[in-house]
């Protein structure tokens, strides 16, 4: 058993801004190259369908801060991409309201 914080070299700050709900999606093929950590491979498998940072943390059993660093590193390596709802707030809220009405 590896200590969670050892996985990310003791760092607890992600260099990419990641909200709890930021969606993480694996970008293309999962690399077979040596040196990809088991945690990164687990992340890439998990995010073959979009998953939030909170889900990454919960489903990979990693503390949130560790999950954030893992995702951030994967973004830098071009292995995943992230999506936030950074569209026009008015239009977005209208869309959300419409979706809630059909909930």
């Amino acid at each position: 058993m590896t200590r969670p914080f050892a996985l990310v070299g003791g760092r607890t700050r992600a260099s990419v801004p990641l909200s709890l709900e930021t969606l993480v999606t694996t970008a293309g093929e999962v690399p077979a190259r040596a040196g990809t950590s088991p945690e990164t491979l687990a992340l890439l498998r998990l995010c073959s369908a979009p998953r939030s940072v909170a889900e990454v943390s919960a489903l990979l059993h990693l503390p949130l801060a560790v999950a954030r660093v893992l995702v951030s590193d994967a973004v830098h390596a071009g292995l995943v991409r992230t999506t936030d709802a950074d569209v026009d707030p008015d239009l977005f809220l209208e869309e959300v309201l419409d979706a809630f009405r059909n909930f």
Partner: peptide, 8 residues
């Protein structure tokens, strides 16, 4: 919301 990062 924070900016979308669409790196790579």
């Amino acid at each position: 919301p924070s900016a979308t990062s669409d790196t790579a």
